[in-house]
Design a protein around this nucleic acid. Structure first.
Lengths: 343, 343
DNA sequence: AATTCCTTCCAAAGCGCTTTGAGTACCTTT
DNA sequence: AAAGGTACTCAAAGCGCTTTGGAAGGAATT
C-alpha cells in the first residue's frame, strides 16, 4: 500500500503544501526541511500519484506518437529501434504514450483529434518529406512537438533533432574520392524522405569539389531492406561501367549489397569499396560483416532517447535543451574501403 | 473549451450523479432521461476527463507493453504490425500505452515495477517460449494480462489469443502430401518460440499420417528475414535430394526463398511448391509475388486489435470475451502449389 | 518602539469525475 | 389507511495532488 502525500506530510509534521513544494523544487522551502522531506521519501518509497497530478496540473504526462502506416515506412526495423530509445527514456520519467497509427491522408485529422483530446502534452513526428505539411499543422494547432529529421523548404523555426546527413555522406564520399574512386554509386532510402535527399546531396557535393558529376544511373532509391540492397547492387554490377565504390543508406541495405558483391566474385575493400550508414541496430553490427564495414555512425536509439528527453523536459519545464540539434555522424574506418582498383 | 460534467448537468437541469449514471449505463436512470443526456452529449461534444476518471476510479486506463529487446525479435517487422493493431483499437477507447523495452533478464523486474506503479491496468506479452516463466510471474503479481501465442508446458489456465499454428501447418502439409510431395522442407522462425515449435509439429503430424518422417536436415530455424529465407532455401536446393515443397513461416522468409528458387532456375508451382504463412503485412502481399503464393493466412494486425479489445473490455468490465481464443488460419490456394514433379 | 520585509510554513480551495447514502414521489400490498 | 416497494434523482464526500492567499515569526529598517 503506497503512501500518499497526506500521510507523508503527517509523518514529517509538515503540511502537504510544504512537502509538495519541497518536492517540486520551489524556492520558499528551507534547505534543511527539503532534505528531511527527501529523506522521508526515500524511506517510505513515496511516489506521487500521476492521476492526481494530471488532474491538478492539467498536464497529461503523455506524448503522442503518430505512427505512419505507409508502405516503405511502416513496421520498419528502424522505427522499432527508434521507438525503443523513446520508450527507454519515457519509462524513466513515468510518461505514457498515445500511439496513433495513421495513414498519410488522415494525418491532419489525427493531429487535430490528438490536440483536442488533451491526452498528450506534446507530439513526436518523423519520416520528414520535402515541404512536409505536418510542421505547419502542428504549429497551427500550437501543440509542442519535436521532429526527428528536418524538412526541406517550409518554415525553418521548429524544434528538431537531425543527423547531418549531408555532412555524413559528404565525408564518406570524400574519403572514397581521396582513395581514387570516381564512379561512386548510392543505394539510398525512399526518394521522398529528406534524409535520402540530403545524403545524395552530400555525395554530389563531394564529387563536385573534384569536378566530378554524379551519374544518375548509379543512384537507387527504395525501402531499406536487405532485398532492395541486393537488387540494386546487382544492377549496378551488371553495367558496362560498374562503380568502384558504393554508399549505402543503411546497414540493412549493405547486407544485401554485400551479398551481391560476393556473388559476383568481387572482393570488398579491394575490387569495390563500400561505406554504409550505421544506425547502430543491435541485430546488425558493421564490425561483424565478413569484411567489417566502414560506416558513418549515429545511433537511432540514442536519437529516440534524446528526443524523449527534450519532449519531457519541455513539458516539465526543466532542463535546458537546444531547440534544434544537428548530430554529426562519426566516420569509422574499417576494412570495406580501399584504394580504387586500376582500370 | 470543452464542457465538463457539471456544466452538462446544469444544462440539463439534472445532478452530476444522474448524468454520470446515465452515461455509465447504470440501471437506475429513466430511459427518457438517459436519451436526453445522450442527446446533450452529442450536442456539446462532451468527453469525460480521463485524468479525473483515473483519479476517481483508481484505474489507469492504460496498458503495459513489455517490448522484448533480444536479437531476432526486437525491431521486428512483425512486431510493428501487431503494434499497429493494438494501437488502432486503443486509440478508439482513449487508452494509453506504457512501453517498456526490456532485456529478457530484466523482465521480471520490469513486470514488478509495472505492477507496483499502478500505471497500467493490464499487460500484454508475446513471443512465447516453451515453459515461458512470464505467465507465472504475471499470475503471481496478479495483474491482468493477455498473451499473444501460447506457452508449451507450464500452467494452462491463462488468457491468450493464438493462431492454431499446428493446424495451419498441418493443413498446408496435408495439401502438399495430397499433391504427391513427400520431401517437404520447413523454413521456420526462431527455434525457441512456440509458434515455430507448433508449426513444425503440424508438419510432422501430417507426414506421420501417411507414414512419412520429417527429415531434420530439411528444417531451418532463424529470425524471419528475407536474407535467412534466401540462405535456407539455397542450402536446401544444394542437397543431393532437394525437397519438392517447402513451408515458410512468414512471407518475409518466402521472399528470400522465392529468390533462391528463381536463381536456381526452378519454376515455383511446378518444379517446387511453396506455402507460406501470411501475417497480412501490408508491405508484402502473397498475391503480388511473381507467382502468387498459396498461404495460411491470419492477420497479425487483427490479432493486435483483438487483444486490445479484450484487454480493454476486461478493464472496463464490458463486453464478454472468451479467455482463450485459438484462431484458425485460412488456407488460401494460389499458384505456388502444384503436383509433385516426377522423379 | 513601530513599521516593513523576508522567509518559511499552512489551511483550504480547487481539478472533474465516481459513488455512497439518502430522499422524494408514486405504486402496491396488507 | 398504514406499510412497504419501486423508480428515479440528488447532495456531498471523496480520489491525491497543486496552488492561492494568507499568517507567524524573526530580521531589518525607520
Amino acid at each position: 500500500m503506497p503512501v500518499n502525500l497526506k500521510q507523508l506530510a503527517e509523518l514529517l509534521g509538515l503540511s502537504q503544501t510544504t512537502v509538495s513544494r519541497a518536492l517540486n523544487g520551489y524556492p520558499e522551502v528551507n534547505a534543511e526541511t527539503r532534505a528531511r522531506v527527501l529523506e522521508a521519501v526515500r524511506e517510505t518509497g513515496y511516489r506521487p500519484n500521476r492521476a492526481a497530478q494530471r488532474l491538478a496540473t492539467g498536464k497529461a504526462y503523455s506524448i503522442g506518437l503518430v505512427m505512419p502506416i505507409a508502405s516503405g515506412i511502416d513496421s520498419d526495423i528502424h522505427f522499432g529501434e527508434f521507438l525503443a530509445g523513446l520508450a527507454e527514456e519515457a519509462v524513466e520519467h513515468d510518461f505514457h504514450f498515445v500511439l496513433n497509427p495513421s495513414a498519410p491522408e488522415d494525418e491532419e485529422a489525427t493531429f487535430r483529434r490528438l490536440a483536442a483530446s488533451g491526452n498528450v502534452d506534446a507530439v513526436f513526428i518523423a519520416y520528414m518529406r520535402a515541404n512536409d505539411p505536418r510542421i505547419e499543422m502542428l504549429k497551427a494547432l500550437s501543440i509542442p512537438f519535436v521532429v526527428h529529421g528536418r524538412s526541406i523548404g517550409g518554415p525553418r523555426d521548429y524544434p528538431f533533432l537531425d543527423v547531418d546527413n549531408t555532412g555524413a555522406f559528404y565525408d564518406a564520399a570524400r574519403l572514397l574520392i581521396q582513395l581514387g574512386h570516381d564512379r561512386i554509386a548510392l543505394i539510398n532510402g525512399p526518394e521522398h524522405l529528406t534524409f535520402s535527399i540530403r545524403r545524395k546531396k552530400g555525395l554530389v557535393r563531394a564529387l563536385a569539389e573534384k569536378g566530378l558529376k554524379l551519374d544518375d544511373a548509379l543512384v537507387h532509391h527504395s525501402a531499406m531492406t536487405d532485398e532492395h540492397g541486393y537488387r540494386s547492387m546487382q544492377r549496378f554490377l551488371k553495367r558496362p561501367d560498374p562503380p568502384t565504390a558504393v554508399l549505402c543508406s543503411s546497414t540493412v541495405l549493405a547486407l544485401g549489397a554485400v551479398r551481391a558483391i560476393n556473388q559476383a566474385g568481387l572482393a570488398i575493400g579491394t575490387d569495390i569499396s563500400l561505406i554504409a550508414h550505421d544506425d547502430v541496430l543491435p541485430m546488425l553490427k558493421p564490425e561483424n560483416f565478413s569484411v567489417p564495414l566502414t560506416t558513418t555512425r549515429s545511433s537511432l536509439r540514442g536519437a529516440g532517447a534524446r528526443i524523449a528527453k527534450r519532449l519531457i523536459g519541455g513539458i516539465l519545464n526543466q532542463g535546458d535543451y537546444p531547440e534544434q540539434e544537428l548530430w554529426r555522424a562519426e566516420l569509422i574506418l574499417r576494412a570495406s574501403t580501399g584504394p580504387a582498383p586500376d582500370r
